[in-house]
Design a protein around this nucleic acid. Sequence first.
DNA 1: GTGAAAGCGCTAACAA
DNA 2: TTGTTAGCGCTTTCAC
Lengths: 329, 329
Amino acid sequence: MANIQEVARKAGVSSATVSRVLNNTTVVSSRTKMKVEKAIKELQYEPSMLGRNLRKSESRLLLVLIHSFSNPFFSKIINGIEDHSIANNYNILLCESDSDPQRENIFLNMVRNKLADGVISMNPAVDMEMMLDLAEKHSIIFCSEYYENDAIPYVTIDNEAAAYKAVKHLIKLGNEKIAFISYEESFVYAKQRRNGYERALREFGLPMREEWIYNAGGLDFQDGVQAVRKFLQCDERPTAVFAVSDTLAIGALKEVNVRGIKIPDEMAVVGFDNINFSNMTNPTLSTVSQPMYDMGYKAASMLIDSIQGKAVDSVIMDHELIIRESTLS
Amino acid sequence: MANIQEVARKAGVSSATVSRVLNNTTVVSSRTKMKVEKAIKELQYEPSMLGRNLRKSESRLLLVLIHSFSNPFFSKIINGIEDHSIANNYNILLCESDSDPQRENIFLNMVRNKLADGVISMNPAVDMEMMLDLAEKHSIIFCSEYYENDAIPYVTIDNEAAAYKAVKHLIKLGNEKIAFISYEESFVYAKQRRNGYERALREFGLPMREEWIYNAGGLDFQDGVQAVRKFLQCDERPTAVFAVSDTLAIGALKEVNVRGIKIPDEMAVVGFDNINFSNMTNPTLSTVSQPMYDMGYKAASMLIDSIQGKAVDSVIMDHELIIRESTLS
DNA sequence: GTGAAAGCGCTAACAA
DNA sequence: TTGTTAGCGCTTTCAC
């Protein structure tokens, strides 16, 4: 594999000139340019990023932290991140820290070791202390989940308002006993959604019962199934369920179906995220839609700005309540 | 940000010794080792991978090509790839080439440019010519989809046998008019599944009709919906459907449900992949399960072996027909 | 418009 | 056990 020196020799110029042709940074006479290009072709030369990266002290790699690939919620966000990154000559290093808590450290080391130029974190379970520490020397953007003081820029939606809107929708349908499937309320998004849920109930003077709140152990379908089983054992069975994620809501839907309970007449269900599958369930699932692609795109744009030393401001994007069969009488 | 020289100076040793401590490659006296570690801590030194990578002329990054994140089929494979990679000090560069065909070239350039040490391709739409060319100088492994001559090692399942088994199962249930939802038969996996479908029909002397074969334009749920709409217009309406992917099968299931057709009595459905959702549909979906995690793990292991110059052999893994409600009378 | 030369940060011979 | 030195492949001053 040829290097820049060999190309230079073959073309009868200096390596500096080859570099200039490669990056067309300064004007090179068209005659030398041609000579160089000919040599490049003949030697099948491919410039090494390793040398370039060391010299420029950048990797042009962005670290993207997610909790788990299995939640389809992330896939569209990543699309947005990738599109913006590639357009700006960055590539993304996608890291799932789900299975192993210490794996996160491995990933964050990539930033410390200059193997990544910045981080987009979508992992709510991230070690915030560590991130704050890292943020002092490196560029970090939070996407979706964030840290509530403004130390690190983020792009997210108004989770409280979205949850409020979803629950209010259930109330308007006539539901008075509304259950909530939550998840890890130490996560900001989950806590905010719970706040929205409670605000709606309070505002309409509806009862709030501990037994109508299920704290799921995960975000898998099965956790939603469990939640419904629990709700059906209540003395006062709820007539509606709001879940913090579509995966949970879909599991709930499934179990309600299995029990032969009519949706939405006997049990209405609303989820959160508008994942693809939410439109394929039977009945289709009402849910809150976040602008996932745009969030990813914006996060990437903020991160690249930040890497380039520009100041960036956090962004709160719009959301939308999507009404489908699971709340349609 | 301190570099190795500064650490050396601070510790009163040479940079070589610092390097030795860092990589504990040769034995260093415990006294110097302590001095060095003290200096590292004081300077908050983090070794730069940029220098190291150039020196060793490796990036320890593996390129993973997928067609689209949105197919949940890939997520478990990636888990397997990631687990093995991380355990061997590699990281993965996940690349989706779906949206933009020329993007693939950008990604493959990363290998040519030494930014990635090897490639795992799961993208059936990959440019095979280009891959074969690339394989002459670089390590490449195919996962799931592969190239039929043995030029490039792969890990996959016996798609033909799996499809045969699925269709035979439908036949045993008494179905004689069995439809097939296909997709891009230029892809090896799709063609092989079709072969299995046809072999089963032939073997049992069942009719094979063009109108019972739908060539989907994509792998989205919606494509499965379209397929069923088409089948329902046939003069002889099929009583069973086999789809090359769960996403298609789930769309089909949905449309069959919407039309009020009974599953499986009036219409049985079998999918392929055993994605998570397939167990959450109503009714649950019969499908072919591939050992996704293991396939990913094995592919990573083969790739790393190949990078290290070892010879690797292709692997065909086991599959399993999973019978659920959509074929259970 | 082009070349010489330094240097990004690290590792690995080789020598001591 | 440790230090010296060269060099991985590139870009970028600084001369000319």
